[in-house]
Design a protein around this nucleic acid. Sequence first.
DNA 1: AGTCTATTCAATGATTTTGTTGAATAGTTG
DNA 2: CAACTATTCAACAAAATCATTGAATAGACT
Lengths: 220, 220
Amino acid sequence: MATSSIKEQVYQELSRVTHAISNPKRMELIDVLSQKSYSVEELSNEITMSMASTSQHLQVLKSAKLVDSYRQGNFIIYSITDDSVLKLVSVVKELGFRKIAEIERLIGDFKADKNILESITLDDLLARSKKEKIILIDVRPEDEYKAGHIPNAVSIPLAQLKKRLNELPKNRTIIAYCRGPLCVMSADAIKLLNQRKFTAIRMEDGYVEWKLKQHEINKN
Amino acid sequence: MATSSIKEQVYQELSRVTHAISNPKRMELIDVLSQKSYSVEELSNEITMSMASTSQHLQVLKSAKLVDSYRQGNFIIYSITDDSVLKLVSVVKELGFRKIAEIERLIGDFKADKNILESITLDDLLARSKKEKIILIDVRPEDEYKAGHIPNAVSIPLAQLKKRLNELPKNRTIIAYCRGPLCVMSADAIKLLNQRKFTAIRMEDGYVEWKLKQHEINKN
DNA sequence: AGTCTATTCAATGATTTTGTTGAATAGTTG
DNA sequence: CAACTATTCAACAAAATCATTGAATAGACT
């Protein structure tokens, strides 16, 4: 049957896309690349895996057209092909978190990092910043901040936070964000700030989520 | 390292979602279920696979919380858990088609079904229906129409089309849709209608795409 | 209660995926 | 052009996936 064959081919092709991120390490790669382009070596460190394996995973992602690469000097730089990939990651997270949330509810665990749960969303941020003057800090590595950040955010990478506490006011609310819902950098930042008697809240959304929101607004 | 372990678990969980649809048959199952709930037996026929295998695939989807099931008399009915699943499928198709389109461009093939390419989108439909009075027909099985359809659409399942041609006018533009971009039912309908000298165009989007559009509009 | 039937479970072998190590490649830089 | 280096290729063994067949289950009807 010709129809069936075409149909099969199409579903085959579609599942190749999801197969590409059906592996935890590849999912992580895509998530890291959502922030900014990186070389194979950097990625290999980030996901703690041998370069050879990292390279292979990247090739799988490339063949599914989720990432692209170009050469820069000695390095090969990988990046996300376009913003539909961001959407894909965002939807998968949405679906994945339903499950994770349920597991946590069942186990009753996750108390150790409970302050991670006390976080606001992008919408909260926008609403809140209209009422009061808040300080928004981006605690990702500086490179990622430079590659793009939420307007009015100040870059204070987590690693530098301890030394730069004097730049922050104690009479204002500080909101910290990082790579998005999966990332713990902002949670660490909040922990430190609260210890030092700052008023600080974590925002779970990151730059990617902000960017996707812009897309939506522009469309309508 | 505790952090790394949590991180790994999270990515593991996220990739379980994508793993669930990283198989062509499971992708097809989700796509079919996007239209309407079905029993295991019906699904098994639809995707031409043994009941045992179909059941197993459904369980994978269920454990990823992409589908849910309940009993109705002798049958177990499977359905999509919620509309985020529709979003997932929609994004995956968007990404998958980039690849498919490129392959077709490279091979230069696909001439046999060329009229599939001459199709309009949901936006085109909306714009066009403001200017002229068009006839919109839904050629999916009647069950799926009953489960939900685009407003003002008339149900004429593909199987009945030949007998019901007299219900359609020749002096108006007829637009046919089915399950969405992957589905060939509307293409078959267009072929028949054009042979019989109707003015008929295929719309590649289906009810699911319409529904997702409503969500977006409601959000802003 | 007993039969019937849709669905699920279990076991199997063929095939694919995974991550590693060590060698090969290609391209840059001095 | 020679040396260097980041990246990719190749080969391997362990582990996971896939679709099938045949048996088991669980619930619905008479």
